[in-house]
């Protein structure tokens, strides 16, 4: 399998994630789509590292994994707190702040 196929796969994953954030209503699902985008970036990093024959991309992938884990902690805490208040995780119902 040539590396370029993996780059195409990474594009596809990133696009699925980005479209998912835009069309889904549930905050948790939106958040999972963001994680998909981060993982698509990881795949691109690792593939490019292989193509260029250096380690920068692989190191980047490790850092991204750590950052994604930290983001999960903060994100779920915020989403759970608003869920406990409103009994829903739908982003359409969070409509007090507008205009």
């Amino acid at each position: 399998m040539t590396p370029i196929n993996l780059i195409v796969l990474s594009f596809v994953l990133f696009t699925i994630g980005a479209v998912g954030v835009l069309v889904r209503r549930n905050a948790i699902v939106m958040f999972m789509c963001v994680e998909l985008m981060l993982n698509a970036a990881n795949l691109a990093f690792v593939t490019f590292a292989r193509m260029h024959g250096n380690l920068d991309g692989q190191i980047a992938a490790f850092f991204v994994m750590v950052v994604a884990a930290a983001e999960v902690v903060v994100g779920l805490a915020i989403i759970v707190s608003i869920f406990r208040t409103r009994r829903t995780a739908s982003v359409d119902d969070a409509n007090l702040l507008k205009y």
Binding site: V21, A27, V34, G75, I79, S81, L97
Partner: peptide
């Protein structure tokens, strides 16, 4: 809380 959720989701989206 609503501001936090909005900031978080959009911020995570943009950092991706």
């Amino acid at each position: 809380q609503e501001a936090a959720v909005k900031y978080f989701l959009l911020g995570a989206f943009s950092s991706a």
